[in-house]
Amino acid sequence: MSGQAAATPTGTLAEAVRRALGMVIDPELGENVVDLGLIYDVVIADGGVALIQMTTTTRGCPASGYLEEAVREAARAVPAVSRVEVFMTYEPKWTPDMMNDEARRNLGLTGRRRL
């Protein structure tokens, strides 16, 4: 694993990790954690260690533990990642403005207001 990591540019590997995290869905909003902007940072350290800084839509959410574990598992499945460390943070606090356009569109954040 670490041999592969050394051969893979860390920027590319970080991108691969982000793509893998696209499989993790926030259960409340039904969109993946990357599009929602819940993944604050992905850094690949020496030896293929993925350091992921993330948050949840609301502090104390019952899904927090599951999301953290899911992010760890999804990142670990990426070839060339030897180990994953996930840091849960609420600084800065997540806001809907952190979503990308696709998540906004899917959640109806654009368009007409409907009750």
Binding site: L21, M23, P27, G30, E69, A70, V71, A74, A77
Partner: peptide
């Protein structure tokens, strides 16, 4: 689905 999230595709709530 929480326990398999990130490892298997899951439906939405």
């Amino acid at each position: 689905y929480g326990p398999v999230m990130g490892r298997k595709p899951t439906p939405r709530v």
